[in-house]
Design a protein around this nucleic acid. Structure first.
Length: 434
DNA sequence: GACTGCGGGCTGT
DNA sequence: ACAGCCCGCAGTC
């Protein structure tokens, strides 16, 4: 299943406009879902594409009334940045996803920059003749037609899933903080009073597009020599699928891997269908994983989350993950180099609960998602990456990690995650009860 | 609470 | 007429 390119006989397919009375129905091949449509692009998605059904975009798009119920129009909200234009290490900027809801967005802008505590500001999108870039969605028969008008003139915000993940992490963090405080009242586990929870545990969003973006809009060192990856969602799922963050405090918590898995799965049928789960999760991990049939189907199709568009155009460095992923360093990072190049090779016994998480991408995502909680990264030692501490709002916050008898074996996690250079000191910091 | 889609209404070109 | 925007409402997650 390769991404569809229009051949010569389908050239007429390129001529349609979203406002046409009649749109082509002789679509032979549909497009893979594009998460970051930019410029003046047109795509035809299958009506079964869940992302298309939901009119998703990683740009922060709000619904715009065009008084045409047949054509859904959405306009870009831009990106939320620090008004002081502060920079973190290596010039990484903070690009937050504007809240779609007006009230939520106003509330969001009253918050402070997590880096310098300066006021936040919204950079409006003016990429379409001074007006926001607009996306149009139109359902027609078995297809969903998409057309974008304008070219975004601002950095990419964090994706919706990233924003959701932040919130989820925050909830888990707060819950875990509570648990930790109860279980460990020592000074080490002290939470910071008055720290705004909304920012508290958020994996701060450091975007890299300014310095890393490659031509084509989906650039970045990771994709520079890689097949296009088209969505973070699958990868995100992998990080969740580890049974990781949400499980830390309580592996059976409501915010468990199954829920997170579902969030990711639902968010992207492409991704899911694209075979991000070439290896089915062990039943013990995702006991609620009830889509094995789908997985089997995709596995049978030989879909590869990295080499095919099952992992659609995900611009890693552009997305605003908190971990330090600077190109200069990652270009030399064997993990990073491996990521897009090969199908997810089985990592024998990598994770006791999930034998083959799907390659190094998995690991990296694990770390970025854990960033707020795990000051570790396969790319850098904690000393190398002060950001991980500097911007962790609770730098000394500790989790009450389960003991060795628990389901969650941190030692094994660390080892299996390939953290050969994992800092023991940090490990101790993370495991105050051990 | 946040997001989403819908639709009425207003304003400007 | 068209585009952009604001607002409220209802449904969903």
């Amino acid at each position: 299943m390769e991404p569809e390119d229009f051949d010569s006989e389908d050239k007429e397919m390129l001529s349609w406009d979203i406002n046409d009375i009649k749109l082509p129905q002789n679509v032979k091949k549909t497009d893979w879902f594009q998460e970051w449509p930019d410029s003046y692009e047109k795509y035809v998605y299958s009506s079964e594409d869940r992302n298309a059904q939901r009119h998703l975009s990683s740009w922060a798009m709000r619904n715009t009334n065009n008084h045409n119920s047949r054509i859904l129009k959405k306009s870009c909200l831009g990106v939320v940045v620090c008004s002081r234009d502060c920079s973190a290490r290596e010039g990484h900027k903070i690009y937050l996803r504007p809240a779609i809801c007006d009230k939520a967005r106003q509330k969001q802008q009253r918050k402070r920059c997590p880096n310098c505590d300066g006021p936040l500001k919204l950079i409006p999108c003016r990429g379409h003749g001074g007006f926001p870039v607009t996306n149009f969605w139109r359902h027609e028969g078995r297809f969903i037609f998409f057309q974008s008008k304008g070219e975004h003139d601002h950095p990419k915000p964090e994706t919706k899933l990233e924003a959701e993940a932040r919130r989820t992490m925050n909830k888990v963090h707060m819950a875990s903080s509570s648990i930790t405080l109860r279980l460990n009242r020592g000074p080490v586990a002290k939470a910071v009073p008055g720290e705004a929870p909304s920012w508290g545990s958020l994996p701060l969003t450091w975007s890299f597009q300014e310095g890393v973006q490659l031509p084509g809009g989906d650039g970045g060192h990771l994709t520079a020599n890689a097949p296009q990856q088209k969505s973070p969602n699958d990868c995100l799922f992998k990080s969740y699928g580890l049974g990781g963050v949400p499980d830390l405090a309580d592996p059976t918590s409501a915010v468990g891997p199954a829920e997170l898995y579902e969030k990711c799965r639902v968010s992207s049928s492409r991704i899911y269908g694209g075979g991000d789960l070439l290896q089915p999760p062990a039943s013990g991990v995702l006991s609620e994983y009830n889509d094995l049939q789908v997985w089997n189907k995709n596995a049978a199709l030989g879909r590869n989350p990295l080499s095919d568009n099952g992992c659609p155009s995900y611009p890693f460095p552009q997305t605003s993950w908190p971990y330090d992923f600077s190109p200069s360093q990652n270009s030399l990072d064997p993990l990073a180099q491996q990521i897009p190049m090969e199908p997810p090779a089985a990592k024998a016994g990598c994770h006791p609960l999930w034998p083959n998480p799907g390659g190094d991408l998995y690991e990296e995502k694990v770390h970025m998602d854990f960033n707020s909680y795990y000051p570790s990264t396969p790319c850098h030692s904690p000393q190398e990456d002060p950001l991980l501490f500097t911007y962790t709002p609770f730098p000394h916050h500790q989790y009450s990690l389960p003991g060795k008898s628990s389901k969650w074996n941190f030692d094994e996690e660390v080892r299996c995650m390939g953290l050969d250079h994992y800092n023991n000191e940090m490990l101790l910091n993370l495991c105050p009860l051990r």
